[in-house]
Simulated assay, not measured.
Amino acid sequence: MHKFKELFGHKPIIAMVHLEALPGTPLYQGSMEAIVERARRDLQILQEAGVSAVMFGNENDRPYELSVNPASVAAMAYVVGRLREEIRVPFGVNVLWDPMASMALAAATGAGFVREVFTGLYGSDMGLWAGRAAEALRYRRLLGRDDLFLLYNVSAEFASPLDSRSLVERARSAVFSSLADAVLVSGPMTGEGARLEHLREVKAALPTIPVLANTGVRHETVADVLEVADGAIVGTALKREGHTWNEVDPERVQQFMAIVRRARGS
C-alpha cells in the first residue's frame, strides 16, 4: 500500500487517454498526427482538472487481440514519446490484451505502471484467454523494470471466467501466487461499472492491498465507490455525452473531480 500511495496519492483517479484506432487495425483513419493531437488535447484537459494519473490505452483497436501486432505497440510508443515532455502526472500504459506488449511499451516510454489481465482463464470475445503472469513478470525483470507497478484486472471485460472459484478467491490468489501489486474489479465491458458489493468483498479479503474500480465509474457513483475502493480508473464518464469513443469533455472532468475532492474530504 505504501508504494501505491507514494505513486498515486490518496484515493486516486487514474484517467484514461484512449487513443484513436492505430495503424493496421480496422478502424484506423490514416493519420498518426491526428491521433497525437487528440491524445494531446485529452491529456491537457485531464491534467488541468487535477486527475491523479493518466493511462494510455488502445481501446479503439477493435476487435481486440490477445497477441498484439507490433505496429500497435510501435504506434503507441510514438504517441507517448511525442507527449512525454507534456506529462506532469504519473502515467501508465495498457496494450489490450497483451501483457508482454504492455511491459515492452512501459519499458520504452518510462511508464510507472501497467494494467493488464495477468491471471485466470476466460472464455471471451477473443476466444480462449489465458493469463501470462509468470511470463510477464520474468519479462519485467529482463527489461530491468522491477519498479513497474502492476495493476491486475481479475474480472476481465468481454469475458467470463472458466474457473469455479469466486471473484474473492481469484483476487487473493492473484496476490499470493502471481504477485499482484494492486487488484482491479471490473464490470462486464468498458463503460459498465463493477458491482459495489464485489468491490466491498474483494477489499475485505485484501485489506492491505490496493483494490480499485476498473470500469464504469460515473459522476453519480464515484463517491460511493471511493468509500469502498482505494481508487478508480475512469474513462467513459469523462467523455462528451458520457460516450466512450468521444473526446474528453472539460466540463464533465471538472464536475467529476469536484465530486472526488468532496468524497476524499469526507
Rank of each mutant, 00 (worst) to 15 (best):
N153E: 05
S155L: 07
D146L: 14
R138Y: 14
G131T: 00
G110D: 03
R115Y: 06
A156L: 06
R145G: 07
G127L: 10
G127D: 04
G144H: 13
P161E: 04
Y139G: 12
N153P: 06
V117L: 04
R140Y: 07
A136M: 10
L162K: 07
E135P: 07
A134I: 11
R145V: 15
G144L: 14
T109S: 12
A130H: 09
S155I: 06
F113V: 11
M126F: 01
L150S: 09
A133V: 06
A156F: 04
A108I: 11
Y122K: 00
T109K: 03
A130Y: 09
R115D: 01
R141G: 12
D125V: 13
A111M: 12
R141I: 15
N153C: 12
Y152S: 02
G131F: 05
L137K: 14
A111S: 11
G123Y: 05
A134V: 14
G127F: 06
V117D: 01
N153V: 10
R140A: 12
T109I: 09
S160I: 10
L148E: 10
F113M: 10
V154D: 00
A136C: 11
F158W: 11
R115H: 06
L128P: 08
E135D: 15
N153K: 05
E116I: 08
T119C: 11
R141Q: 15
L150A: 13
S124E: 10
R145M: 14
S155D: 07
L137G: 05
L151G: 06
V114D: 01
F118K: 01
R115V: 12
G110Y: 02
